[in-house]
Every structure is written in structure tokens, then in C-alpha cells.
Nucleic acid binder design. Structure first.
Lengths: 159, 159
DNA sequence: GTTGAAAGGTTATTACG
DNA sequence: CGTAATAACCTTTCAAC
């Protein structure tokens, strides 16, 4: 245990279990056991270890955007002001705190950051941009793209 | 139940419960009960209903990119060939099938689709682009951005 | 070190007020 | 909705590999 963040060696059973749990955490250990070809007890032991070592970061519910009346998803490309790394770090910390920001990627290329932002409507997004971008001296320019359809949404890794 | 996709009216308790489950599905109903101010049984009843109505789409494990040795994340902007809507639909179906494609958004603006793609390394990504893009007549052009740091990753909605 | 079966303890589900 | 009984599940133990 307690080897968080480091490289972990997972065998085929571990990978099979993780493949299941990426699909759904509502499988019982017996269901998983049947799929991976191990006893339920062995599966649970392994799942516990995968949690403890940090291979499984967390287990969460994914909600329907409809249900939460959050129908707008936006993609924002950001260019920050050049020169100081502390500006970058501050921006990262800011983005962590905004509930509207689902995802924030620090990227190479023409832009510095790319955000996936969620909002109830354009007005709410407008307010967000005011708080997060216009009032932020670190931001040189930003560019919003409206998502028309979420074709695929997930955080699964191929195993 | 069975009102999937439609607008659902959630009261404050439901929203509190969803807020918990977006953070972690490992809370026991008693823990949730304490947080939201309801009995454990009432919480479970509501959770069952939230699942049945589709407010909770699914419950999944989020893995560490390190653990699965999948250290590359890429952002791909795609322009498709104009004219036929069946080309768009076919492209969407394709993207659903690729395990490398974590997310696919159909967007407005200069590009048509934006993908979040994951790969072991550049070579694996190269192979993916060959299969998914170069051999795909629907694609007019595509543009890859390398993610240097995943500052924030999630699918939570503000409640 | 690992496994699997049966014990016990915890949690979720059902029945009823 | 909440309380209490039932059922399902997870965790621990332990013998064996």
C-alpha cells in the first residue's frame, strides 16, 4: 500500500477488475468474480488494494445534464500573459476552485489552457467569464466554443 | 420512474444527495443521511429513484493515469467534409467505439468535433490517428494538441 | 506471497406504521 | 417519511497452496 502516484504493477486480474469498475461500480464482487475468473473474496481484496495504492482515484456518480438543468457545455481556449510562472500557477489554482470548470488542461500549441465549462445558460456563462476571465489580469485572450452535442463523455482508460 | 432524459424536479434533498454522490459513491447511506438531514432509508429510496429516472446515469471508478500507464492525453480538433448529415452520424458512431476516445463533443465554430484522446505514447497515438482519421473519408482536417498537465479532471455539475 | 470457503459484521432493502 | 425486520453484501479469519 501507500505507493500513491508511483508506477504500479497490475496483473491481468487487476486490469480485468479495473475494466469492470470503469464501466460500473455497482457490480457485486460475485459478478466481478464471475467475469474475471476469481473468487469474490479475492476480487474484493484486490479492489481494496487498488483503492489503497491509488490506482482507483475515486468512485463517483455521473449525472445527466438534463437532470441538473445544466444544459450548456462550453469549450474555452485560453492564452495567458507570458513571462511569469507564478501567473500560470495562480491560474491553475483559480480553475480548481470554480465549480463551473469541469476540466482544465494545460496544453502546448497556440493556446495555453483548454477548459470544459458547464453552465445553466448563456447568461450564467457570461457571469462566469466576467468573474473568471475579464477580472483576471493573467489572461491575455480567450475563445469560447459552444458544445452542441456531447457525443461521448467519460474518463475511462483502455485496458 | 422511466422518465429518462426528461426534465425531473429534484428538491433540495435530492440535490444534496447528488452533490454527495458526485464526490464519492463510497459514502454509506447513513453518512449521506447525516449530511442531508434525512434517515438512511429515505436517502436510499431517493438514490434508487435518481438511478431509475436517469438523473444518475452511471457510477464509475476513476483511475489514475499513472496506474494504467496511459500517460498521454491529447486534444484533437476536427473538421469534417461538408454536405451530408449521414457522414456526421457515422463519425459519431465511430468515435463511440474507439476506447482511446474518452470524450467527443460536436461543436459550433471553426471546428466540428473536439476529442479528448488518451494513449500510452506518441507511437500509439500515431496508430490511432491512422485508423481513426487518415483512413476516414469523412475527415477534412484534424489538429492535435498535447496536454502537458491535467489541472482538473471531472464530470461534476454544480448543484 | 497468493487463494477460496465459511465465519461474522456492516450495509442495503423490504414491510409496516 | 421513519422504524424495525429481512436480505444482501463486504470483510475477516483461517487453512491450504
Amino acid at each position: 500500500m501507500i505507493n500513491i502516484g508511483a508506477y504500479m504493477d497490475l496483473d491481468g486480474f487487476d486490469r480485468s477488475i479495473l475494466r469492470c469498475l470503469q464501466q460500473s461500480t455497482r457490480f457485486t464482487s460475485e459478478q466481478i468474480a464471475e467475469k474475471v475468473g476469481l473468487s469474490a473474496t479475492a476480487c474484493q481484496r484486490r479492489i481494496k488494494r487498488l483503492r489503497d495504492t491509488g490506482a482507483i482515484v475515486r468512485e463517483v456518480a455521473i449525472l445527466s445534464p438534463d437532470a441538473v438543468e445544466n444544459r450548456l457545455t462550453l469549450l474555452v481556449q485560453i492564452v495567458v500573459k507570458r513571462g511569469r510562472s507564478d501567473v500560470i500557477d495562480a491560474f491553475k489554482r483559480d480553475m480548481m476552485t470554480y465549480a463551473e470548470v469541469q476540466q482544465c488542461y494545460y496544453v502546448t500549441g497556440a493556446f495555453d489552457f483548454i477548459l470544459i465549462v458547464t453552465a445553466r445558460d448563456i447568461v450564467e456563462y457570461e457571469h462566469f467569464t466576467r468573474r473568471a476571465f475579464f477580472d483576471n489580469p493573467a489572461i491575455h485572450e480567450f475563445n469560447t466554443t459552444v458544445v452542441m452535442e456531447q457525443v461521448k463523455v467519460g474518463l475511462e482508460y483502455p485496458l
